[in-house]
């Protein structure tokens, strides 16, 4: 029961801040609202017992993606003007509504597989067991390291070009 209450508070928080992101006049305020929205999503993951996903959400989305977003705003020439919708306002509304319709329609009509079992209490250790096991995904894990290496080297190349 308390889980339902938590879900509705978090859902209201997410939807409210997501709307605030769209309607905020100042683009910097929009970014801050987006961070609160990410927090709400992390909270929903917690109520679903997806603790690892919640940690990833907080670390990557709130910690890193928001930093990148705010840096992007800082690097913009005239951020105080925000993003004027201009002529594309009406087409953008039509496309966004169509996409929303398709997504909601597919979510409602899709035959979701459900199980009576509740998920494991702590998923992080299970994930660790899979990730760091000889017969698990240890190779994929190391390849992810290579991908991070490529990301930094790419950033270095971009900065050095000037």
């Amino acid at each position: 029961m308390s889980l339902d209450v938590a879900f509705w508070i978090l859902a209201a928080l997410c939807v409210g801040t997501a709307l605030a992101v769209i309607f905020a006049k100042d683009i910097f305020h929009a970014a801050l609202f987006l961070i609160v929205c990410f927090f709400g999503v992390a909270g929903i993951y917690v109520t679903l017992n997806a603790d690892f996903l919640a940690a990833v959400q907080v670390l990557v989305y709130i910690g890193a993606v928001s930093v990148l977003l705010i840096f992007g705003i800082m690097l913009t020439r005239d951020p105080s003007k925000g993003s004027p919708a201009g002529k594309l306002r009406l087409p953008a509304i039509v496309v966004a509504l169509a996409l929303m319709g398709v997504m909601i329609g597919s979510m409602i009509t899709f035959d979701w597989q459900t199980t009576a079992d509740t998920s494991k209490m702590v998923s992080t250790e299970e994930i660790a067991g899979l990730l760091f096991d000889e017969n698990g995904y240890v190779m994929t894990f190391e390849i992810a390291g290579l991908m991070l290496l490529a990301a930094i080297v790419g950033a270095i190349v971009l900065v050095r070009k000037e």
């Binding site: 990833v56 990148l68 992080t124 994930i127 660790a128 990301a151 950033a155």
Partner: peptide
């Protein structure tokens, strides 16, 4: 960008 990579590194160290 360097910070983001460090952040993702943390994600893998956590489990």
């Amino acid at each position: 960008l360097v910070f983001v990579v460090l952040d993702v590194l943390t994600i893998f160290l956590y489990p």
